[in-house]
Design a binder for these strands. Structure first.
Lengths: 215, 215
DNA sequence: TGTTTTTTGTTGCATATGCAACACCGAGGA
DNA sequence: TCCTCGGTGTTGCATATGCAACAAAAAACA
């Protein structure tokens, strides 16, 4: 279904180089200052050709995001196969670790787009996407575990609020990570992210808080 | 005159990427093991297109050399303008320094091509080119300084022998430099190269040996 | 040795891209 | 105010490239 599969080599090439150029330029001069001409020149692509593929630079960023998002779900997929609903915490940790692995693999992209010269649109879109993934994951989870009654601490609280909160923490964590000098491992980031989110999120959700354990 | 000037962007692009791919692959698997298909795939260029530009991989290396050689003389040109024939040593040092600067700028290329997985043809061609440059330089020099009598230590010795010897030392020095961990500056390399060659060459040539000085 | 697989060059046709030119717009300067 | 200037999109035509298929040579293998 993905429109990007076995297309003409030339098309894949121009997409690739335009996207690369965009990422480079965002890190160099910031998204706002970039012109279509800049991108085309850097990518060694004629400006007219740019317009044959993208509406404008925003559209290009949108496509970059699309692709990243696809890669992300692709990277996460294998994990959902063998999930044991009994071991909630373990599994969640694995999933988040996979997530941070994905970020590490595309570090250049995320560092550019989420950084302070990046594209706010990209960040917003990314938060949405993360929320969607989390909610999907919860749904899948409850289906597998059966619809057991969940104590709701505060029935008035909208379902999406804590998910939104997580998405913000996550973005912040990512940016901090990618801009840090130290380059920590994905595993470390998973641990630290998890420690922060753990109690708040699970308790809001009405899960019992398992023992800290594992390290 | 150069056939590479304001050509179609697509042509420049494919040249560029085929050359880059070649350099990458030489460092990765060595020149011998490379196939045209490899190059094309790495460069994201159709194999048929490769043959529209180059005969075979040897031809590609030849073109890479051509281009490098052109860059080299281009980089050296400005120096020849303001040469003071009185200050031989100073000027020679400047010229050699410019040379090593050029090497540094194209380090990836030379490291790949001259290294032990590189192309012997490239090295040989490079030595020839260096010899040509040195001989040209000497000729220019003597024209500017006037045809003064030069004491010849051994009239039986062919003119090109010491030049050939220099070219070998130079290649060795370059390879050692580019494969060293320490990355020394071009200026340092100039100094060390010069120290080694200085007495032998100048004395063979029958120049008086100036005081060591300068540092 | 014979056989299979890879690599090499080459070709005709389809198509993505380059190029140049254009009108348009918005921001800054005389 | 006019007016240049830099950026935006768009167009028609020329051309470089992709693709698939092919034969032949070379390499790999038994």
């Amino acid at each position: 279904m993905s429109h990007e599969e076995q297309t003409d080599l030339r098309i894949r090439r121009t997409h690739h180089f335009l996207q690369e150029a965009m990422i480079e330029l965002v890190t160099e001069k910031g998204f706002d200052a970039i012109t279509v001409g800049d991108i085309a020149e850097r990518a060694m692509i004629n400006r007219a050709t740019f317009y044959r593929h993208y509406q404008d630079k925003y559209d290009l960023v949108a496509m970059i995001f699309e692709e990243a998002a696809n890669h992300l779900v692709e990277d996460m997929k294998p994990l959902h196969k063998d999930i044991d609903p009994g071991e909630k915490e373990e599994n969640l940790l694995e999933i988040w670790n996979q997530f941070f692995e994905h970020i590490a693999e595309h570090a250049r992209l995320y560092r550019a787009m989420l950084g302070k010269n990046g594209s706010p649109w990209f960040a917003a879109r990314m938060r949405e996407h993360i929320m969607k993934l989390i909610l999907e994951n919860e749904r899948r989870w409850e289906q597998q575990a059966g619809p057991r009654p969940r104590p709701r601490i505060d029935p008035a609280m909208p379902n999406t609020l804590p998910v939104m909160q997580i998405s913000y923490v996550l973005i912040g964590t990512i940016v901090w990570w990618l801009e840090s000098e130290k380059n920590y491992t994905p595993r470390q980031m998973t641990t630290w992210f998890w420690r922060f989110v753990f109690y708040g999120y699970l308790s809001v959700r009405g899960y019992e808080a398992p023992a800290q354990g594992k390290e």
